[in-house]
């Protein structure tokens, strides 16, 4: 399983220097939580890992990110290839405008990963991994928009798992859900930790405490402190981290 190495990463939105000199090594097979107040650059950092920032033509990126030792920025790198290795679960569930089955099958289809019975098996496995199979297994042909918001988010997770990524990014993926559905997603992510390198952004300190093995604390576009979760939560080193955990700032 790959670890993620971030080297001298700088990101500008137009003239705004959004991320400054980020150097990080995110451990493989664990859950890394990126925390910090809104606007600190958490999501920007996350979206640089699957190169989703490329979609914004005003973004300028310098530095490098290595996944399992392979650089993901560079002229020879195929972006779609990077994104097959790095799945993403967005803040709000956004099912594709197609059936439940096709939502999950879409990724494997475009990448030519599986066909026919193999594809059906992959869809089934992904839905089971996202703990959605029992609820939708009998109505795969229905529109994905008919599902509840919590179910939609699990469908989006199944969709991301179906392309068999090594890394899974979660961008405040429980923020738009009701508490029960959010708890469900949390448990799911926790159960996936052995099989994927998980990186999640959250503004919820308690959630980070519950889930994270490794923590990155950001402030105004810079990494202030990072390290194993237990150490960070018990003995934060930096005064900003201490203040943030005590909810005095942020």
């Amino acid at each position: 399983m790959p670890g993620i190495a971030i080297r001298k990463l700088n990101i500008w939105y137009g003239n705004t220097h959004a991320l400054r000199e980020i150097n990080l090594d995110l451990p493989d097979g664990q859950i890394t939580a990126i925390i910090g107040p809104s606007g600190c650059g958490k999501s920007t950092l996350l979206k640089s890992i699957n190169r989703l920032l490329d979609l914004n033509e005003h973004v300028r990126i310098t530095g490098q990110i290595l996944i399992d030792g392979a650089a993901i920025y560079g002229k020879q790198v195929d972006v779609t290839e990077v994104r097959t290795q790095v799945g993403m679960l967005a803040q709000k569930p956004f099912p594709l405008p197609m059936s439940i089955y096709d939502n999950v099958a879409y990724g494997p289809r475009i990448h030519g990963l599986a066909r026919g019975r193999q594809l059906a098996q992959l869809v089934t496995d992904s839905l089971k991994a996202a703990r959605l199979w029992d609820e939708v297994g009998h109505r795969l042909k229905e529109s994905a928009h008919k599902l509840s918001v919590g179910q939609q988010q699990r469908l989006c997770l199944a969709r991301a798992l179906a392309i068999q990524p090594a890394v899974l990014l979660c961008d405040e993926s429980t923020a738009s859900l009701d508490p029960i559905a959010a708890r469900g997603i949390e448990e799911l992510l926790s159960s996936l930790r052995q099989r994927y390198t998980l990186v999640m952004v959250t503004h919820d300190i308690e959630q980070a405490r519950r889930l994270a093995d490794y923590v990155v604390f950001m402030w105004l576009g810079e990494v202030v402190e990072h390290g194993p979760a237990a150490a960070f939560f018990q003995h934060p080193q930096h005064s900003l981290s201490q203040a943030y955990l005590a909810r005095e700032i942020g």
């Binding site: 994104r83 799945g87 993403m88 990448h111």
Partner: peptide, 10 residues
Amino acid sequence: ELREALFALG
């Protein structure tokens, strides 16, 4: 978000 979801799938 729909476009991002599709791009994120590669």
